[in-house]
């Protein structure tokens, strides 16, 4: 029996491309940007492995060849795929849930520590070759251990951050729509309103999903309620932050430092961030470890394989 045909829309880690070639008649794409002839290249394929940035809206799905039975996306989020349109055509969709939580939480912790301890400024000083030696207030940062950490959005990633932060003796507070079962809280303190939550947040980590309800959640009003000199980190979605308000607070010192992995309008972030010394900036690489990208590739390929074999995988979206 011939292997099923899998169309891969983007360059993937070598280990995952090797796995695809082993199990499928794989059509690989040596590109890091979304291709513009996706529909044509899907001709005859049984399955498509796509990435965020590939637009599979209702129109594109309607135009897909009849051979396509599965769309797998190399991501947790699937807002680039019109799931209802796929379902209407009998195309199943799967993604890569769960496997990014640890890597993203590590990224948030790195941003917390790096922003609080002024890692970027120290690096630039040392690399410039102009380090003159110790001075009394040189690069004095904010201590992280024994401080209070506020987590906005206590899902899987938020809970991983809480677990890591406990190693630093941080007191964990969280704000979410509903309180967690006590066995998932591990002593973290729930807040059902911003007014009790924000004034406690010496360090604030944003971990809520991006949606209309959370759009620009961190705005000037909420920033004013943080303790002066707070550290703010966002490794979730850029839309959670009102950039103008955050930049103003970073300039005034109301917020001592920020660490950001995500932005409004990526990759065209607000250029004012680049003028600030007290921000640590990462190019949306929260999940970028070899181990995590490998796990993402394996889970999406295994989901595609299961669907083609007539089974229902755990990572089926619809």
């Amino acid at each position: 029996m011939p292997k099923p045909i899998l169309f891969v829309t983007r360059r993937l880690p070598a280990s995952i491309e090797a796995l695809a070639v082993q199990d499928y008649d794989a059509r690989l794409t040596p590109s890091d940007v979304a291709i513009d002839d996706l529909i044509a290249r899907a001709e005859g394929a049984d399955a498509i492995l796509c990435c965020p940035g590939d637009v599979l809206d209702a129109k594109a799905i309607a135009a897909l060849p009849a051979s396509v039975k599965v769309i797998g996306t190399f991501s947790v989020g699937y807002d680039h795929v019109d799931v209802a349109a796929a379902k209407a055509r009998g195309i199943k969709v799967c993604n890569t849930p769960d496997v990014l939580s640890v890597a993203t939480a590590e990224c948030a912790m790195l941003l917390i520590m790096g922003a609080a301890r002024r890692a970027g400024e120290g690096e630039r000083l040392v690399r410039s070759g102009k380090w003159q030696g110790w001075a009394p207030t040189q690069l004095l940062g904010t201590q992280v251990s024994d401080r209070r950490l506020g987590i906005f959005g206590m899902g899987r990633i938020g809970r991983e951050i809480a677990r890591m932060a406990r190693g630093f003796n941080m007191e964990i507070h969280y704000r979410d729509m509903a309180r967690l079962p006590v066995e998932l809280e591990h002593g973290a303190i729930f807040h059902d309103n911003d007014d009790s939550f924000l004034p406690l947040c010496q360090v604030l980590s944003l971990n809520a999903p991006g949606s209309e309800g959370t759009r620009h959640w961190l705005n000037a009003d909420r920033i004013a309620k943080l303790p002066p000199g707070a550290v703010v980190v966002n490794a979730a979605r850029g839309t959670l932050v009102d950039d103008d308000a955050l930049i103003a607070a970073l300039r005034s010192g109301q917020i001592a430092a920020a660490g950001l992995d995500v932005y409004n309008n990526e990759p065209h972030l607000n250029p004012d961030y680049l003028t600030l010394e007290n921000v640590m900036l990462l190019p949306h690489l929260g999940s970028a470890t070899t181990e995590t990208r490998d796990a993402m590739g394996r889970i999406v390929l295994s989901g595609i394989g299961a669907i083609l074999a007539g089974q229902t995988p755990t990572n089926l979206v619809a």
């Binding site: 983007r10 360059r11 880690p13 990759p267 680049l274 900036l281 990462l282 190019p283 990208r293």
Partner: peptide, 24 residues
């Protein structure tokens, strides 16, 4: 996690796509 190399990419403008297997 290559934090500082990433920060340098950002400060140089981040005007290219990073592949799923790159800079891990």
């Amino acid at each position: 996690r290559r934090g500082m190399a990433y920060d340098r990419i950002m400060r140089q403008g981040w005007r290219y796509r990073i592949g799923q297997g790159d800079l891990l």
